[in-house]
Design a protein around this nucleic acid. Structure first.
Length: 282
DNA sequence: GCCCAGGAGTGTG
DNA sequence: CACACTCATGGG
């Protein structure tokens, strides 16, 4: 099936290829392809529309794509609000098409537990291996992210041979400690309470809790701080110190859209390191 | 070979 | 509270 969707602004490479989500791959002519709730989906820009392709008989794809790309976010309005910040206002429009994504809660939790002390290519590879071994096959060699139930069935010995390192224990223990009902409970919590509950889980500290709050549970006020963000906060705002302190600064400064501010700063800091250009300070 | 990575867990001062 | 150390390993 094939249809078009109006969703603007949207830059697929920025949104799907830079560390929010790990399973989309660039295809031909600027298209991106990846699994979405058990279906293989291909996205491509055509003018001001988004062209969507999915397997024949694919059900609810329009809603799946809309949800994943947070079609309800008024990104222009968010940018105007954040643009009142003197630092962000200098370069925020370069990232107009960068959207926050919405990922399945369980997949997001596992993905960012795996993301501890690893780089993005490696995170993608770990997730791909897990999917190949424990996820339902979709088409070709593309597999779904393993369900909670599949991970619960997986022996520790099997998880240990997926190249996850010490993170294999996190995944195994997450399976032990979670079930569908618990995830549903978590969805109903406010951000601060959600965050502290997530931090009770194995492999979930400050940073992973904020990533999962933001990308998995859709809490736009969350502001994940990794090594790139520490650099950005120090360089652009002169802020240093503990996670608690930096997070308090971000909450005070960026408020309800802190998650978007974080993505702009994160993207900018990484782009700057790669190319030496593209910088809010210029 | 070296450096680093979307850190967490644990122990200590 | 803040630090210090360890954890296991592939990508650049």
């Amino acid at each position: 099936m094939r249809f078009q969707l109006r969703i603007e602004p949207l830059d697929l490479a920025m949104t799907l290829g830079c560390g929010q989500t790990f399973r989309w791959r660039p295809a031909e002519n600027g298209a991106w392809t990846g699994p979405l709730d058990g279906q293989m989906v291909t996205l491509r820009r055509s003018g001001h529309l988004l062209s969507v392709e999915a397997s024949p008989g694919g059900r609810g794809v329009r809603e799946l794509v809309g949800t994943h790309l947070r079609i309800g976010d008024d990104v222009r309005k968010i940018q105007r609000a954040l643009g009142e910040d003197r630092v962000l206002s200098r370069g925020i429009d370069r990232y107009a098409g960068l959207r926050i994504v919405k990922i399945d809660e369980w997949e997001c939790l596992c993905s960012f537990a795996l993301a501890t002390y690893a780089n993005i290519p490696r995170i993608s590879k770990m997730i791909e291996t897990l999917a190949d071994r424990f996820g339902r096959r979709i088409a070709g060699d593309l597999h779904e992210f393993p369900s909670l139930e599949a991970i619960r069935r997986a022996p520790m010995a099997a998880l240990s041979t997926c190249g996850l390192g010490y993170r294999a224990n996190y995944i195994h223990d997450l399976g032990r400690q979670l079930d569908r009902a618990r995830i549903e409970e978590l969805k109903r919590l406010g951000y601060e309470e959600l965050r502290s509950e997530l931090m009770e889980l194995p492999g979930v500290g400050d940073k992973v809790a904020d990533c999962v709050s933001l990308f998995g549970f859709g809490r736009l006020e969350a502001f994940p701080i990794d090594v790139w963000m520490e650099r950005a906060l120090k360089r652009l705002y002169g802020q240093t110190g503990s996670y608690r302190k930096l997070r308090a600064f971000a909450t005070e400064r960026f408020g309800q859209y802190a998650g978007y501010a974080q993505e702009y700063l994160y993207f900018n800091e990484r782009a700057r390191a790669r190319k030496g250009s593209c910088d809010f300070s210029k």
